[in-house]
């Protein structure tokens, strides 16, 4: 079933889940510290073991979130890969939006003007 696309929002459907299976499986394996060590010791061999497609291998090599997503990566699994480099979700957000990390954080912060309204439940009337 296809729904109208949401701009700037990849929806992790079955098509993505199939396309990204090897990549996500490799990232899932990085939960284990010995696997993170093996990845760091020999990235090529580790990626080969999981049968990454050339597109996925290139995406991993480039450390580019947009390419990893395009290759079927799901952000929850990619977070385990990003963790190896000490990157958090603000770093990932900045990279995907073309902002610096400080600019990305400022964009999030800008929404805080609504905090008191939502706390009081006065933005909507249901």
């Amino acid at each position: 079933m296809s729904a109208k696309p949401i701009p700037g929002t990849p929806v992790f459907t079955g098509a993505y889940a199939m396309r990204g299976y090897a990549l996500n499986k490799m990232c899932f394996s990085l939960n284990a510290p010995e696997n993170r060590a093996a990845f760091k010791a020999d990235e090529d061999a580790y990626c080969a073991k999981y049968g990454l497609t050339p597109q996925q291998r290139e995406a991993i090599r480039s450390r580019t979130v947009a390419k990893l997503i395009e290759a079927g990566g799901n952000v929850y699994y990619l977070a385990k890969f990003a963790g190896i480099f000490g990157l958090n979700v603000q770093d990932l957000g900045a990279q995907q939006t073309g902002l610096t990390v400080d600019e990305f954080k400022a964009r999030l912060q800008a929404y805080s003007v609504h905090n008191e309204d939502v706390k009081a439940g006065r933005l909507t009337n249901v």
Binding site: G8, I69, V89, L92, Q96, F104, R107
Partner: peptide, 8 residues
């Protein structure tokens, strides 16, 4: 967390 709309 993902896409060009990350941070929405």
């Amino acid at each position: 967390l993902e896409g060009e709309r990350a941070g929405f």
